[in-house]
Nucleic acid binder design. Sequence first.
DNA 1: TACTATAGTGTCAAAAAAGTAACTAATGAG
DNA 2: CTCATTAGTTACTTTTTTGACACTATAGTA
Lengths: 115, 115
Amino acid sequence: MRKASSTNFSNEAELAAICPMHNVMKVLGGRWKIALLYFIHQGHNRFSLLQKKMPFITTKMLSQQLKELEQDELVLRKIYAEMPPRVEYSLTIKGQSLLPVLEDLYAWGELHTKS
Amino acid sequence: MRKASSTNFSNEAELAAICPMHNVMKVLGGRWKIALLYFIHQGHNRFSLLQKKMPFITTKMLSQQLKELEQDELVLRKIYAEMPPRVEYSLTIKGQSLLPVLEDLYAWGELHTKS
DNA sequence: TACTATAGTGTCAAAAAAGTAACTAATGAG
DNA sequence: CTCATTAGTTACTTTTTTGACACTATAGTA
């Protein structure tokens, strides 16, 4: 929904032109995206594993956020034709390329935000 | 049947414990925060100037986001006791310390997101 | 036959975020 | 006296996001 969303197109376009960071935030801004990238990176690569790691996120949200990450090509979704179904998530090259930047941001957070 | 973590608070706390990036995103995640930091950094340091730069943001949103940036100590708000009122915004040290990280993120965006 | 497991989807309702538009205060200009 | 200016605030409405929870499919197991 977010991608082709109903939000005023010209606003989005203008903002993207003015602040290209907006594109980045569209990709990373979701409430659980960064946590998901980390967990997938750590090898929690299946839906049920991610749910176990984050018991407070609903299945609907998890599915939604994963779908968006996949559409933004940060995460790869590999389906095995088995029963019960098996799906494995992993970071794409693009997803991996984000990790160092996120780590810098994380380091900033460590220094500058208190829990 | 443990209705675990039913309150907002425990969700936030749990999430912050699990993903400290969440704290960073709380500070930067707002729809216009990063753009605002950039513009203020560039010297568009007054309410009306910022509005001119971003004609699509409502006064309410602008005021709200600036207030949050101020509360998070990324932005300094200096009030001059004049009439008509004058208020000047600038980045705090903390706000400035964020710039290099944002630039890295920005560079990633340049490489990996298409406008 | 019933039950389990996986990986979700669909629908409706509630909550949160954002937009709209009117309003404020004090002063100088005309 | 009226208007313009700056930097917002407030009340109300609409839109968007999130939550709760029921439901699906298929094979294997008891």
